[in-house]
Design a protein around this nucleic acid. Structure first.
Lengths: 149, 149
DNA sequence: TATTGTTATACTCTATAACTATA
DNA sequence: TATAGTTATAGAGTATAACAATA
């Protein structure tokens, strides 16, 4: 409660924030990777499921979301499909397009991964209501509003 | 102050925050991957340099930081060393340990990668001073203070 | 005995280029 | 001509198991 000078004053210049983001997302990504592995999935497979949890997506859209070449998505979706976690559906309006859809099992596994991310979840649960809203609004401004999608 | 439902009410429950973090990480990681590629580095190589930018680290420490098996680090460091971006140094106090150190060129390249992350940088620059401090403090609480390192 | 780093192996991810089917 | 998806290929990342050197 005192105003005593803190040893760890937030270094909130852009460089300091970039560095903290690097650390934070490293922790998040590690948490995610371990959680995906616990379901016998690679990080890329887990990321694909997470993207698809928001809704079906064409192969190419999936590639853009994952910042990789479209040719990579073929193999990733092949393996997920072989495990019954996703399925390809023909697009009615453009026969070139294949939409990838999560199966019920795929949804279950995706949710299981997120449920296993204890480090991230515990960190978020440590925040109060007001702080959670602040963090949400700030991340939204930095990574969503600002991004040209 | 009214209770009128907002179209874009921040969904600040833990599940909503997890989802927004997932999107944010995706944007950040994509930004990082493109920036690393512009220096002819893979994402893993770029991550390794970023970790080392904080200071030298033993092979095993590096592996823990990157959430991967120690055997992978051998190859990654091999390639970075071949390009003159890092070097292995014998640890004086334990002859089993090799400390990996960033060379001057490695520091330059690492900083160049971060400088190229325009999406993330612009997003952060769009925040005011107060918001930057808030974001810094919140991320620190969620991912650093809470993490058992 | 335990730990550090490496090697060998098999599989996955990745970018590039070339191909097909469709637009 | 252009675009969506696939295939082939080579290099890089990954976990596992086994190993030598050191603690």
């Amino acid at each position: 409660m005192t105003e005593a000078p803190r040893a760890e004053a937030p270094c909130a210049d852009t460089a300091g924030l970039m560095e903290l983001l690097s650390v934070s997302l490293g922790v998040y990504y590690g948490d995610f990777t371990v959680a995906a592995a616990s379901e016998n999935l690679t990080a890329s497979q887990g990321r694909t499921l997470t993207v698809l949890r928001r809704g079906p997506a064409a192969m190419r859209t999936l590639a853009e979301n994952m910042t990789c070449d479209a040719s990579n998505v073929t193999g990733i979706v092949d393996r997920l499909e072989k495990r019954g976690l996703v399925r390809r559906e023909a697009d009615p309006s453009d026969r070139r397009v294949k939409n990838v859809v999560l199966t019920a099992e795929g949804e279950r596994v995706t949710d299981a991964i997120r449920a296993r991310m204890r480090t991230t979840r515990d960190g978020l649960d440590g925040l109060g209501d007001q702080d959670r809203k602040r963090l949400y609004a700030l991340l939204e401004r930095v990574f969503v509003s600002g991004s040209p999608s």
